[in-house]
Nucleic acid binder design. Structure first.
Length: 472
DNA sequence: TCGACTGACACTTTTGAACAGG
DNA sequence: ACCTGTTCAAAAGTGTCAGTCG
């Protein structure tokens, strides 16, 4: 599990691709310590299988569940303290993709990011004991491509890459989330491409084989007749779309087509430490996204469940612009849209990274070294919280100023495009309205004040842009 | 013309109301 | 009256595929 300890104030940012997976493995003596809060992904093997092929998730107007769905195990929480669990979807990069001859290719710049929504786990808030006693499932999370969706589903763009982020917030109620500390986790193998129709027949086959609802489409299922009569037409169409190689995939077993693309990886399962060191190189072989990387567009984290704990989690103070570049570089993935732009303009994307990371990184450490009781409360701060067992990595600086109406006040904290993103309804009060806390950089504080709204209750709170909707 | 998208379809699983029995 | 277990229909979740749209 990785934490904000990687974001030291004196962080001097090695190239993202090299630092990302490494940092969590060996926190230095001055590493920012957090508690033993730990999140692990359930069904990692299944996720890995999908990831190795290139996971696709169907998005529909009425909303579609994910498969595999997100399910995690938690440990290290205070049994009696209440927590809120959230999930949101983060763009992997700033590109739109197309499926072309058995692989994904960049098809241009990403479309403006739709309103960023967060799925609140229906059990939230619940004591740590509740979250830890069994795995936490986000089964009912739905994805949609309907930007006008009123059901609270997470809005995504088709043919864009995303990965889910899991947030744990210690908060007695939804009202107090704003003053709470976010612990954020991601799992590289959960990244996926949002599609309106499956592009890769291997993914289709995997889904049919593993999703009970699709049992009727299995070869051995009761629906042989339907498949026998209709499948050929489908295959013909798919073949036309994907090329002749698609026909092979129909014959392949799941392990077979896994190996077909990632054979080398399969052989290295047991050699984790070495693999970690070399993964920046190896992932090129394992990832279905090699085409993009070859163009310097992006890098993908290597699949592998065994490695996920070391670098697939993060802890950070959400910030509208700062977190995003950090995220992508942190994991050795693709640059943020903004950094991508700079990269395409001749820059490496690093400048964006370096200039923004301190906004996050400088927050925690010097504060963390103090006893929590001495921490200066954020101005306009609301109820004080119990100190978490883990060191706080920062305090979410949310103003209580009632500067606007729910759903209108801007909170582009999760806006992956930062200032570039046309926020529209997300626009909020100007930074100048709320003086930053002393320990925050001006920029960070300026970003943080966009959180200035108030959560009244679950229903109302769910309408806020930060965690725009809950889905229960 | 082509690729992305939509909606109807057949199938399966899940959910919850209704009921029976203890 | 309450609880538990069973049954069954409706709802919801799947991928397929023909058609639409830009």
């Amino acid at each position: 599990m990785q934490s904000i300890r990687d974001l030291k104030p004196n962080y001097s940012g090695p190239p993202p691709s090299s630092m990302a997976p490494m940092a969590p493995m060996a926190p230095g003596p001055d590493a920012y310590l957090q508690g033993n809060l730990r999140m692990t992904l359930e069904d990692p093997d299944l996720w890995k299988t999908f990831h190795e092929i290139g996971t696709e998730m169907i998005i529909t107007k009425p909303g579609r569940r994910m498969f595999p769905h997100c399910k995690v195990n938690l440990s290290g929480l205070i049994p009696c303290a209440k927590y809120i669990l959230l999930v949101d979807m983060v763009p992997e990069d700033g590109f739109r993709y197309k499926w072309n001859k058995e692989k994904w290719e960049v098809a241009g710049k990403a479309e403006p990011q739709p309103p960023c929504r967060t799925y609140l786990h229906p059990d939230s808030p619940a004591p740590g004991s509740h979250w830890m006693k069994q795995s936490v499932s986000f089964l009912k999370l739905k994805l949609t491509n309907n930007t006008l969706d009123q059901h609270g589903h997470i809005i995504l763009h088709s043919m864009h890459r995303y990965h889910p982020r899991f947030h744990i917030v210690q908060a007695d109620d939804l009202f107090s989330v704003r003053w709470s500390v976010f612990q954020t986790f991601t799992f590289p193998e959960t990244s996926f491409t949002a599609v309106t129709a499956y592009q890769n027949t291997k993914i289709t086959k995997l889904k049919i084989d593993h999703n009970p609802f699709a049992k009727g489409f299995r070869e051995e299922g009761t629906n042989k007749k339907r498949r026998a009569t209709k499948a050929p037409a489908c295959l013909e169409k798919r073949a036309k779309q994907s090329g002749a190689s698609e026909r092979e995939s129909e014959e392949e077993s799941i392990p077979d087509f896994c190996r077909s693309s990632f054979e080398a990886y399969e052989g290295e399962e047991g050699d984790l430490p070495k693999r970690k060191e070399a993964e920046a190189v190896k992932e090129e072989r394992y990832s279905p996204w090699s085409a993009e990387r070859e163009n310097g567009v992006r890098t993908a984290s290597p699949p592998g469940t065994d490695t996920r704990d070391m670098y697939n989690t993060e802890q950070l103070v959400p910030g509208p612009a700062s977190y995003q570049p950090y995220r992508f570089h942190e994991y050795g993935k693709s640059p943020s849209p903004s950094s991508s732009v700079s990269s395409s303009n001749g820059g490496s994307g690093r400048s964006s990274f370096e200039s923004r990371v301190p906004d996050v990184a400088t927050v925690p450490e010097h504060e963390a070294s103090k006893p929590r009781a001495q921490e200066a409360p954020p101005p306009h701060c609301g109820p004080q919280h119990l100190p978490a067992p883990q060191d706080y990595t920062g305090v979410l600086n949310m103003s209580v100023a009632q500067a606007g109406k729910p759903g209108v006040i801007g909170h582009h904290i999760y806006g992956p495009y930062g200032a570039e993103q046309p926020l529209g309804q997300w626009s909020g009060p100007g930074p100048a309205q709320y003086p930053p806390p002393h320990h925050l950089t001006a920029e960070y504080a300026a970003q943080a004040v966009h959180h200035g709204y108030h959560h009244g209750n679950v229903a109302e709170w769910s309408q806020y842009p930060l965690f725009s909707y809950s889905c229960w």
